[in-house]
Design a protein around this nucleic acid. Structure first.
Lengths: 338, 338
DNA sequence: GAGTCGACGTTATACGTAAAACTTGGAGGC
DNA sequence: GCCTCCAAGTTTTACGTATAACGTCGACTC
């Protein structure tokens, strides 16, 4: 019962149960079999419950030299996708007694140039999105186990990678539009230097150009609705043949494109088909609902965490990309033969 | 230079600089003035830099009995609003050398019924949204300093509260619609037991009924686009006078209402005006753009963290609700005199 | 020249836990 | 009767840090 206000320690529990502190540690750590009698173990557990004992994690971490805490580095949390990644990672982590601490991009948090100062927790490993590349150089400084999300497998030296099968997603979009008869494409591309966007551009070009008589133009935009609105307006009012299909790098860009198209007096999908990528809540809020590719963010988080656990365990992480699904909705239709 | 692979400790730094470990602690803790000569201090700092020394946080936490880490309890991170709250809280926290750990609802994470097991970090305090009420009973178990967000100031015994001025927001919506000439209202209410939603219902009723000849009907819905779609359809196809204004408890509900209204062949705002509350990215993605009340999520997070820092410091947190702003867009217009 | 004081350190200790190393009191074998 | 062995613990130590308490040396006071 110690000093009233301070939290009980394992020593307090020991005293209450009439045993030594070591015995408490053994019992509560579930290592008592063959070392402590069942009756005593029960007495210890009871005392711990009565006192409301909670182990001091700082002490445990110090003793064990590990924290069972990992860092998740993402570009921004207000991005629904990365919120899902966090949820998935945290779920798997909790199942293994781990915690996940967030480091949502230096820009979002402020002047803390040091992820380990910002996240007070000491860390056992790091999961990082390739879109938060600015933070990565700092992180490689410490030699922590690292898992990269949606990063070039060839380029991320040594680090394990967990990737969505974006290539397949883009292929499905391209095939869907080609099958509908589209031949003239506009690609609304995110001007963010990340592998995941490079893949989109490469695969779209590859896939479309295998069909004769096709063309792909590209417009670049920052990752916001407003920027996409501007970029789309510019691209659609440019001289030359009008595209019948607009392939956007993600759903947010598609939302901006919707606004641009509407302001130009065009209709979706009658005048132009639009596709996205992500399948955020946004996709079904739009009118017409957006044809897009569903990326399972939570699975990305889960697989990322599993991969990190494997690395920490000295095992080899599971290979294989995470499958994605084309979701056909009202924003795509065969082009008007006008 | 220790054992090669292990991280350097303050003792390693001490040895490299030719001083005692205590001196290293004094210098690096910036408490050396009058205790260590400037030359020695510089030598210590240099040695620390050379070795790439980082203090072991577990040891520091154990020694100091505090962790400079707080817990943020939110219903779900995929809610853009709470992502903003986190960002704001983390920014202020970083500025004061604190970290923020998330606990996004028991349901989202899994079977971890214990926030302090899930968040491996030991905690100095807690910031909790009243919408995550299920987690609160567990938390009150430990006597940690607590700040409540958007919670009944009268009902949260002792805990400091940080609230948005929702009352004013609803008043502004009501006044805006009344000024446009609306008299028949439908309130699409979230059926979540939380103070923040109770306030909306109360204030809307209060405000509207002070004008003669008005009526307010209420429809209840879960907090999802689909549920809102169903609830709105039911309410609008019910017998009785048709409302000319639909006041939704948040933007997501409004998005569902948009779909319902469109499917019924009605137009916004010609046949019915719609308002939201939150001002998410969603609001401007909708067509027409949504008239709503902007809630500054990041300010909520900042103020919450500031309040917690004040409590930890023995000071009284700043009082005063956080102001909100009505943002008038295309979804509201005077009713048709048909 | 004894006492005082400040500058510049050092030594020692505690935080709470986990686990290795040690103790003790029988039971059982031969 | 002595040795071995096991169950059921206990004692001790280490993790890395921050800081209280203690030294030591020279300069300065009177």
């Amino acid at each position: 019962m110690a000093r009233g206000s301070t939290r009980p320690t394992s020593r307090d529990v020991a005293q209450a149960a009439g045993v030594s502190q070591a015995a408490v540690s053994l019992v509560l750590g579930d290592k008592w079999r063959g070392r402590v009698s069942a009756a005593t173990a029960e007495r210890v557990r009871e005392a711990a419950r009565d006192l409301g004992y909670r182990p001091n994690l700082a002490a445990r971490n110090l003793r064990l030299g590990r924290t069972r805490t990992v860092l998740l580095v993402v570009p921004a949390l207000t991005n629904e996708f990365f919120a899902g990644v966090y949820t998935g990672a945290a779920r798997v982590a909790a199942r293994h007694g781990f915690g996940v601490v967030l480091y949502p991009s230096p820009a979002g948090i402020g002047p803390a140039r040091d992820p380990f100062a910002s996240a007070q927790a000491a860390l056992d490993g790091v999961i990082a999105s390739s879109m938060a590349a600015d933070a990565l150089t700092e992180i490689r400084g410490d030699q922590l186990p690292l898992v990269m999300l949606d990063s070039d497998p060839a380029g991320s030296l040594g680090a394990a990678t967990v990737n969505l099968d974006i290539t397949d997603g883009v292929r499905q979009i391209a095939d869907h539009l080609l099958a509908q008869g589209h031949r003239s494409f506009l690609h609304l591309a995110a001007d963010v230097p990340s592998w995941t966007f490079e893949v989109r551009a490469r695969e779209l070009a590859d896939r479309v150009t295998t069909t004769p008589g096709t063309s792909v133009r590209t417009a670049h935009s920052a990752l916001s609705i407003e920027a996409a609105l501007t970029a789309t307006t510019t691209a659609l009012t440019a001289p030359g043949p009008h595209p019948t299909a607009l392939v956007c790098d993600d759903d947010k860009l598609a939302a901006g494109a919707y606004k641009a198209i509407r302001r130009l007096g065009l209709r979706i999908p009658d005048d132009i088909s639009v596709t996205g990528l992500d399948d955020l809540a946004l996709a079904t809020a739009l009118e017409p609902e957006l044809t897009t590719v569903r990326l399972d963010a939570e699975t990305v988080g889960e697989r990322g965490m599993q991969a990190l656990l494997a690395v920490l365990d000295g095992r080899t992480p599971d290979a294989g990309d995470i499958p994605v699904t084309l979701v056909v909705r009202g924003s795509t239709a065969p082009p008007n033969a006008s």
